[in-house]
Structure formats: C-alpha cells, structure tokens
Design a protein around this nucleic acid. Sequence first.
DNA 1: ATTATTTAATTTGTAATGCAAACAAATACT
DNA 2: AGTATTTGTTTGCATTACAAATTAAATAAT
Lengths: 164, 164
Amino acid sequence: MENSQKALVLLRQIIRSTDMQVKEISSRTGLTPPQLMVMQTLRESGQLTSGELAKEIVLTQATVTSILDRLEKKELVARERGTNDKRKVWVSLTDEGADLMKGAPTTQQDIFLRHFDDIQDWEQSMVVASLERVAFMLNAQHLNAAPVLDIGQLDREQNEDLEI
Amino acid sequence: MENSQKALVLLRQIIRSTDMQVKEISSRTGLTPPQLMVMQTLRESGQLTSGELAKEIVLTQATVTSILDRLEKKELVARERGTNDKRKVWVSLTDEGADLMKGAPTTQQDIFLRHFDDIQDWEQSMVVASLERVAFMLNAQHLNAAPVLDIGQLDREQNEDLEI
DNA sequence: ATTATTTAATTTGTAATGCAAACAAATACT
DNA sequence: AGTATTTGTTTGCATTACAAATTAAATAAT
C-alpha cells in the first residue's frame, strides 16, 4: 500500500478512536458530547463569556445557550452577569462540575500520556514532528479549500481566517 | 513545553481541523455531517445492508433508518429489499448520489495527499510510523476502557478489514 | 409441522443538537 | 441626543440519536 494511503487510513483510525472515546466519557459522566466539550473547555480556560465559549468550540451562540441551560439546570456550571459590562455572561464550573470533570474525563489523556511517556525520547520527537507535519497539511488544506475546489457551487468563500 | 503536551495539542488540532472540513463539505453538498458519512461509506463500500451501514459508522439502526429516509427522499440513495433474504434492505447510491459524491467530498483527501506527496520519502515513512504509534496508543487506550467488545461481531466480520 | 427464538429493519416517542431569524438590553459611536 | 453595534436569549424548525415496541422474515427447537 502507498504511504499516502496508509497515512489516510491511520488518520481515520485516529479520528474514529478519539470519537469513540468521547462517547464513552460522555456516557460515563452522564453528559452528551457537546456538553462534555463545554465542560472541558471551561475546565481548561476557567471563566469565559458565553460568546467566547461559542467561538472556542465553534458553535453558534444560540446553540451554546441551550447547552448551558441544561448544564445549569444540572448545577454543573454557573452563569453570572458581568458587573462591568452587563451584556456579558460569565460562565464557570460549579464545585460539583469541577468534581465531575476531575474524575473520568482526564483518562483519555492519561492513558495516552502513559503510553507516550513509555517510548524513547527520539521517538517522542519523531511523533511530535510528524503530527506537526500532518496538522500543517490538514490546516493548509482548510485554508486552501475554496480556491482549489471550485465546484462552481454557490459561494466564493474568501479565506481570510487564520488560526493555529 | 513537554513532548507529550505538544502531542496532545497537535492531536486536538488535527481532530478539529478534520471536523471543520467535514462541516465545510457538508454545507457545500447540502448534506448534514451524518448524511455525508453515510454517503461516503456507501461510495467506498458499494452496496450495504442497513445494518452493516449502521455498524460501519457506529450508529443505531434506528438512527440510520431515519437518515436513509431523508437521503432517499432526496433520491441520493436507493433501498432495495433483498430477494434472497427478504428481511435485508440493500442500500446503494443512486446515479445522482454518486455524482454528488464525485465532486467535493474527495477533496479533503486530495489536498492532503498533494501535500503528502510533496514531502520526502523518508519523511513520509516517518509520518506513517508515527501515526501508527499514535493510533496504537489511542487504540490501546480504547481497548482498556471497554474491556471486551462483543465476540459475536468478530465472527461475522471476517471479511472486514480496518475496524480499529 | 408447529411453536419458539433470532434476526433485520422500521416505527414510536423523547431528549438534545444546531442554526437562522427575531428580539431585548447594554454599550459604543457620532 | 440618536443611531449602530455588541451580547446573549428566545423562537421555530430540521435533524440526530437512542431505547423500546413492532413488524416481518428466517432459523431453531420440540
């Protein structure tokens, strides 16, 4: 098999594997995948406004609002109106929410890290370098998307958005 | 930053990038992500029964049924009752559906491949080896989490190639 | 052969995403 | 002041996703 084909198959395996882990952690915590994503983001970033949260996980504000409604009802997150700018709504994990996230959710990373730490130093560097390569190729692909595709469909898609 | 942390961040980038590409292709083809996944699977595997399809994309039959309902209404897939075993329902792309999938959907791979082909041979090998490493680490992690996965399935899936 | 069990897919009912559009409130701009 | 923009919510709608119940067909058991 070609190297390129191998790479694609492996990528798909990685994606799928990660996806299934997300589902597993979700069911273990009693959260849906989007809810889990919100919780993880909050754990990492601490306090965020609803809008920042939406941007971070690439969903509409409306969608995030409804997700937060349910998490708030479960008392896993708390909303607090900004005192300075009263339009803003600051969202954070409650103690209960932080507790929940302390348990299962890290396991995904933990087990990966345990394996990762087991391999040789040079191999770690190799893996990182390769992932950088792949990320770049995928990312370039995203930034390039419109010009190359040009399926003649509707929009022209200006690609000014850069991130990393 | 630690190698392991770098690896995790990169992995997340890769996942996110892929996710956004899926969304992009979806909106371009006028399909939802799950619908796209069904279409892609059908394009690859040709004719499948509803149940095989569900297993392949890891969703319930009930869910697949409703997705197929909509794809059938758009005349992108066709359902045909099995003549031999009349319980089975064979699903396949219509000409229209195949046409739609001929356009954008492959581009994801195409652009990646173009970049991939550009890099040196030794680097390709390195990337593949690294992805194998990562896939293994993620996989082991998954197998750890869900101890035993239904042995009955393995019997039935002797013809299946890459399933984890 | 008749009954029971299993298999394959659908139907039903319910919760949750996800978005666009409309909306309200606070802030910024001129 | 008066208008525009930002921030978040609400509303309405299509879709996903699943469990449980259901239908129909095939297979097993007695």
